[in-house]
């Protein structure tokens, strides 16, 4: 009988203990989840933080203390609740974040404390909020092997704590030139970048290049520069460019116009004027995106135009040539 009890103790008792320990390691006794807030700006109007207090026990009584201030050592706002009764494992709370009072460029410190009815601490959730830093200007060539990040886009309480989201912009396979086989169309599909933005937002995207020789006489020039509006579109997992407007093109010489002209036909492509390859080869094409994403990042991209061959011409320098023979 004693042996049986010993065996029971040795084999059955430790298992639930182990199981309990594992469970307690993965799920804290109390944790918070919340709605998403942000991006925040310095001294903006106050926002609601809707928090759900999750408990591993189905019912409990607790007091929550919400503190905020410019820093951890300078708490200027504190609110202690009455005794609350948590049932069915969770309890919904709503706090007003006093951003208009405390959120400076140096950040704002807040803490949510969950205490027992006798004010013994059960769990503490300190967090610091920062305003988003916007309108940074980046040059694509400076981010060939690194990623540009805009911190503190969004905040959200998750089981692991306060989750801070970043906005990233990177340039995989960055090209400093637009190399195409034939001088024909200016196709920007090989120019692409990557970002984790959920929604593609930007103030403007423009392609521009100098046209000192006036090889695009029907396009508007500003200080000898031609500006073509672009759209940023998602293609597979990357972001690439499309022309925002449709063009009118002369089918004989590929002259482009943004306004209808006699004999010109509508197209969505940007054609390059016939017989102007050498002038076009000197061009530096700039792509400027302003106000991209939540971080309102300005992106500059400079490309050199390279074309191996003319489209049609002599067989040495062109992709296609006309050959005649007597029969």
């Amino acid at each position: 009988m004693r042996l049986l009890i010993k065996l029971l103790f040795l084999f059955f008792i430790p298992l639930p203990i182990c199981g309990f320990n594992l469970a307690s390691n993965s799920t804290p006794e109390i944790y918070l989840t919340s709605n998403e807030i942000g991006p925040l700006t310095a001294y903006q109007e106050d926002v609601e933080l809707k928090v759900v207090v999750h408990s591993t026990t189905a019912t409990r009584t607790f007091i929550d203390v919400f503190k905020c201030g410019p820093s951890q050592s300078d708490i200027q706002y504190s609110k202690t609740s009455a005794i609350r009764y948590l049932s069915n494992y969770k309890y919904n709370l709503t706090y007003i974040l006093p951003l208009s009072d405390f959120l400076s460029n140096n950040g704002m410190y807040c803490e949510i404390r969950i205490e027992n009815y006798n004010h013994t601490l059960v769990a503490s959730f300190p967090f610091t909020l920062f305003p988003i830093v916007t309108n940074k200007t980046i040059n694509a060539k400076d981010y060939i092997k690194k990623t540009f990040e805009v911190d503190n886009i969004k905040y959200r309480f998750m089981m692991s704590g306060l989750n801070k989201e970043k906005e990233t912009i990177s340039f995989p396979n960055y090209l400093s030139y637009l190399n195409i086989d034939q001088y024909y169309k200016l196709d920007l599909s090989s120019v692409y970048f990557s970002s984790n933005v959920k929604e593609i937002t930007y103030t403007s995207a423009l392609m521009s290049f100098y046209d000192f020789d006036n090889i695009f006489p029907y396009l508007a020039h500003f200080l000898n520069k031609v500006f073509i509006p672009l759209n940023i579109v998602k293609k597979d997992k990357y972001l690439t460019f499309e022309y925002k407007n449709e063009f009118y093109v002369n089918p004989k010489n590929c002259q482009m116009s943004l306004t209808p002209k006699d004999g010109f036909v509508l197209t969505k492509h940007f054609y390059l004027p016939v017989n102007e390859k050498n002038k076009m080869l000197d061009e530096k094409i700039s792509i400027d995106i302003s106000g991209f994403g939540v971080g309102k990042t300005n992106i500059k991209w400079s490309l050199e135009y390279l074309a191996s061959y003319n489209l049609i011409g002599d067989c040495d320098t062109s992709q296609y040539c006309i050959v005649g023979e007597q029969v």
């Binding site: 040539c321 006309i322 050959v323």
Partner: peptide, 8 residues
Amino acid sequence: RFEVREAH
């Protein structure tokens, strides 16, 4: 006879 050839 004249024809278009792809040179490259």
